[in-house]
Amino acid sequence: MEEGLALHHIGVRFGGLTALDDVSLRVPPGRVVGVIGPNGAGKTTLFNVICGFVAPETGSITLDGRPLRPRPHRLTRLGIARTLQGTGLFAGLTVLENVMAGASHTARAGFLPALLGLPRSDRDEARLRRHALDVLDELGVAAHADAAPGTLPFAVRQRVALARAFAARPRLLLLDEPAGGLGGEDIAELAQLIRQLPQRAADPCAVLLVEHHMDLVMSVCDELVVLDFGRVIAAGTPDEVRDDPAVTDAYLGASVDEAAA
């Protein structure tokens, strides 16, 4: 049986605009797959199809070889988590509460016990709190657990957003431009973190990465898929993609590395 997430000949149109045209890709377990391309290439639409925000007109999605019709509110139960451009944190919650919200689908008590403050709900909250603190500690930001996200530097907020995604114990993590707004040192730390995700002793996960920072992409990805005007124009290892003339043309005659500068 085919393992992992796979997109088969996906097509999306918005009115007269073709956003995705016959796009196929696969994210196997234990791999980091990157999606790159110029602005407007269809990268965000691709993520929105996987998350169920956009329904494809043609093609299909499978998870472990079985048909998948994703719905945004069911993603975490399927083992899929996503970070957003920016951070997408809840301003009215503390850092710890944000991360606990990422794991709320694992709560066993349900809504009514939580509403009534029953003991089972208290035990559930304590378990989620311990798990959230463990994830924050793993990412080096546990000291900020009680802070409001808006009071923290952007790089720290990015780590909190990642912690919220990790708290869901995903098998597949969708990273949407996680290096945006980060400096060189923070990007290097992010790269190290992404490389470790598929090999984590606890809760390993595959990664699908959309990113403009080519140094990051080339250093962490096992495979790359290049989109241009909604079509796949190249796919392969980072070295294969870097040397592909179609990729160079898509980046307006610059090398892939220069285009990201």
Score class of each variant (00 low, 15 high):
2 E>F: 12
3 E>P: 05
5 L>I: 05
7 L>H: 04
7 L>I: 07
8 H>C: 14
9 H>M: 07
10 I>S: 02
10 I>Y: 04
14 F>I: 12
17 L>E: 12
18 T>G: 09
23 V>E: 07
23 V>W: 01
25 L>H: 05
31 R>G: 00
31 R>Y: 02
36 I>T: 08
37 G>C: 11
40 G>K: 14
42 G>C: 07
44 T>H: 11
47 F>D: 01
48 N>A: 11
49 V>C: 05
49 V>Q: 08
50 I>S: 02
50 I>W: 01
50 I>Q: 04
52 G>C: 00
52 G>W: 00
52 G>S: 02
53 F>K: 01
55 A>W: 09
58 T>M: 10
59 G>Q: 04
62 T>H: 08
64 D>Q: 05
65 G>N: 13
67 P>V: 10
69 R>M: 13
69 R>G: 10
71 R>C: 07
71 R>E: 15
75 L>H: 02
76 T>K: 09
79 G>R: 02
79 G>M: 07
80 I>Y: 02
82 R>Q: 10
85 Q>W: 11
86 G>F: 03
92 G>F: 13
95 V>K: 02
95 V>N: 01
97 E>A: 13
99 V>N: 01
99 V>A: 08
105 H>P: 11
106 T>K: 15
106 T>E: 12
111 F>A: 15
112 L>D: 05
117 G>H: 10
119 P>S: 13
120 R>F: 09
122 D>R: 14
122 D>E: 13
122 D>K: 14
129 R>L: 07
134 D>K: 11
134 D>R: 13
137 D>N: 14
138 E>G: 05
139 L>I: 03
140 G>D: 03
141 V>A: 04
141 V>H: 02
144 H>D: 08
144 H>N: 06
146 D>C: 06
147 A>F: 13
147 A>R: 15
148 A>Y: 15
150 G>H: 12
151 T>Y: 09
153 P>I: 06
156 V>N: 01
157 R>E: 14
159 R>Q: 05
163 A>C: 03
163 A>V: 04
168 A>Q: 03
173 L>Q: 02
175 L>A: 07
175 L>M: 12
178 P>L: 05
178 P>A: 10
181 G>I: 08
182 L>V: 10
183 G>S: 11
186 D>K: 03
190 L>D: 00
190 L>F: 06
192 Q>E: 15
193 L>A: 01
193 L>S: 00
193 L>W: 00
196 Q>C: 09
204 P>K: 03
205 C>H: 01
205 C>M: 01
206 A>K: 00
207 V>H: 00
211 E>N: 12
212 H>A: 09
216 L>R: 08
221 C>W: 01
224 L>G: 02
224 L>K: 01
224 L>S: 00
226 V>Y: 09
228 D>G: 10
228 D>P: 10
230 G>Y: 00
232 V>M: 09
237 T>G: 07
239 D>P: 01
247 V>M: 04
247 V>H: 08
248 T>D: 08
252 L>H: 12
255 S>K: 08
257 D>I: 10
257 D>P: 09
258 E>I: 09
259 A>R: 12
260 A>R: 10
261 A>T: 12
